[in-house]
C-alpha cells in the first residue's frame, strides 16, 4: 500500500495503490454507469457497463477494462468517456435492453448512449435475468444463507435455488428481490403469506401494530445469528 498518482480523463489524482479504478473515479465525481455493483457485496464484473479505457504509456496501446475490478497503480491513464468506451457500453446496453427492456433506468441510459432501435430483438427465454449475480452474492455475503446460486453454464445458465427446487434453507427475507436490478425475481405478498422462489412463507404480525412485517423463518434466523431476543424482533421497524 502507498499513495500513487494516476490520470483520469487527463486530470491527475492521487489514490491508494491497488484501489479499484471505479472507486477512485466515483470519489472524484466521474460518472461511470454500473448495474451489478453494490457497495455491500463483493464484485464480479458481470454487467460490463463500467468499462473504461486503460493505458500505461502516453500514446501507447489501450485496453478496455472493467473499472470495478481494475487496480490502480502509478502512471495509469484512464479514459472514462472516450469514443471506444462509449462504443463498448453501447453494445452492452443493446444486449441488456434485449433481455430486460423494463429494467429501472436502463432505457434512459441507453438513450443517453444513442441506442435506437435494438438490432437484437427481444430475448425472453430466461425472463429478465442478466446473470449479474447480485442476488447470489447478497444471499451469501449479507444474509449468510446461500440459498441462491447459478445452475448450468453458457447459454443455459440460470440463477435460482439449488436444483431449481424450492430451497429448504431460504428464510424468505426477500433481499434478492430488493437487490435485483431488473425485476426478474418475483415476490408476492397476500395476507399472512409471502411467495418467493416457489416457496410460501408464513408472515409474523408485529406485536404492537398488528401488521404482517416479516417471515417467521427470517426472525428465527436473525435470532440465531445475533442473539437478539424473539420478543424484541417481533416489533416491526415502525414500532421499534
Amino acid at each position: 500500500m502507498g499513495k500513487i498518482k494516476l490520470k483520469i480523463d487527463g486530470r491527475e489524482f492521487s489514490a491508494e495503490k491497488d484501489e479499484y479504478v471505479l472507486d477512485i473515479a466515483k470519489r472524484e465525481g466521474f460518472e461511470i454507469p454500473t448495474y451489478c455493483h453494490n457497495d455491500q457485496v463483493s464484485r464480479e464484473a458481470r454487467c460490463r457497463l463500467c468499462v473504461v479505457e486503460a493505458r500505461w504509456q502516453e500514446g501507447g496501446h489501450s485496453r478496455i477494462v472493467t473499472s470495478c475490478l481494475y487496480p490502480a497503480d502509478e502512471g495509469l491513464m484512464v479514459e472514462t468517456n472516450s469514443e471506444q468506451v462509449r462504443l463498448v457500453r453501447r453494445v452492452v446496453l443493446e444486449l441488456l435492453l434485449a433481455r430486460t427492456p423494463e429494467a429501472k433506468g436502463l432505457a434512459e441510459l441507453a438513450a443517453e448512449y444513442g441506442v435506437g432501435k435494438n438490432r437484437f430483438g427481444a430475448d425472453t427465454d430466461f425472463g429478465k435475468c442478466i446473470l449479474c449475480g447480485l442476488c447470489v452474492r447478497t444471499c451469501r455475503e449479507v444474509v449468510g444463507v446461500e440459498a441462491l446460486g447459478f445452475r448450468m453454464r453458457g447459454v443455459l445458465k440460470q440463477v435460482g435455488p439449488a436444483f431449481a427446487e424450492p430451497s429448504s434453507v431460504c428464510i424468505g427475507c426477500g433481499a434478492c428481490y430488493f437487490v435485483c436490478p431488473t425485476g426478474h425475481i418475483i415476490m408476492t405478498e397476500k395476507g399472512d403469506e409471502r411467495k418467493i422462489w416457489g416457496r410460501t412463507f408464513k408472515m409474523e404480525k408485529c406485536s404492537k401494530c398488528g401488521r404482517y412485517f416479516a417471515p417467521k423463518y427470517q426472525l428465527e434466523w436473525i435470532n440465531s445469528q445475533t442473539g437478539v431476543a424473539m420478543d424484541r424482533l417481533s416489533l416491526c421497524q415502525d414500532c421499534k
Binding site: 446461500e146 440459498a147 446460486g149 445452475r151 448450468m152 439449488a162 430451497s167 434453507v169
Partner: peptide
C-alpha cells in the same frame, strides 16, 4: 457446504448427469 454449491458443480460439468 450449501446445497447450491453442489447444484452448481453438478450442473456445470457435462460429465455429470442428474
Amino acid at each position: 457446504i450449501p446445497l447450491t454449491r453442489v447444484s452448481e458443480v453438478a450442473t456445470f460439468y457435462k460429465t455429470f448427469s442428474l
